[in-house]
Structure formats: C-alpha cells, structure tokens
Design a protein around this nucleic acid. Structure first.
Length: 88
DNA sequence: TAGTTGACCGGAA
DNA sequence: ATTCCGGCCAACT
C-alpha cells in the first residue's frame, strides 16, 4: 500500500496458480478501477520475473500481450481459468 | 513541464 | 460478430 504501481505488483504477484485476473480486476484491487490502462503500461515497462504477468489477461478473456506476443503454452492453463472469470 | 504512448475497456456503427 | 471511437491512468521522452 504505497503507490498504485506498487499495489499492482503485489496483486499480480499474489495471483494463485491456475487462476487469472483481468487488467481491470487488478486495477480494482489496486483501488483504482479506472487505471486499468496504467496497469497494462506498468507491467509492460516493468516486467519482473517475480510477477506472473501471463496470468493477467484482458476482460474479453484474451491473453493480451504478455511477452509482446510470446504467449507460450501457459495460455493453455489460462484458457481454463479465463472461463472462471466469465463465470464469476 | 508538457506531450505522447500503451500489454485496455465500453459502447456505438 | 467485427470494427471504430473516445476516455481514463501511469510511465516514458
């Protein structure tokens, strides 16, 4: 709980395995529901190994960008999780 | 300091 | 269903 960016890192880092969160969801958890734009930008410029950005997907259920298009098979795992979000 | 950018979202055509 | 447009925020130049 320091800055919006800091929260985003913590939240994304706290995403459990086998689950995913949309950029907007993360923004909401960061107390800035309207900053979903910034969330994507922050993760993009500050991609840390400790942060599973691949678990963060678009609200539409798409993987988004992750590694600029290098999604890898992890989408397979996400594929299942993204359904949960829609159900949720 | 101000302007541009981007891994976005929602609504409208 | 797909495509286009406007709007919001933080970081970058």
């Amino acid at each position: 709980m320091e800055t919006f960016t800091k929260k985003v890192y913590e939240i994304v880092r706290n995403i459990p395995i086998g689950k995913t969160m949309s950029y907007k969801e993360v923004a909401i958890k960061a107390d800035n529901p309207k900053a979903y734009r910034a969330v994507g930008n922050i993760l993009n410029k500050n991609y840390n190994e400790d942060i599973p950005c691949h678990r963060v997907i678009r609200t539409d259920g798409k993987t988004g960008g992750y590694n600029r298009g290098s999604e890898i098979k992890k989408i397979k795992l996400i594929k299942e999780s993204k359904i949960l979000i829609k159900h949720n």
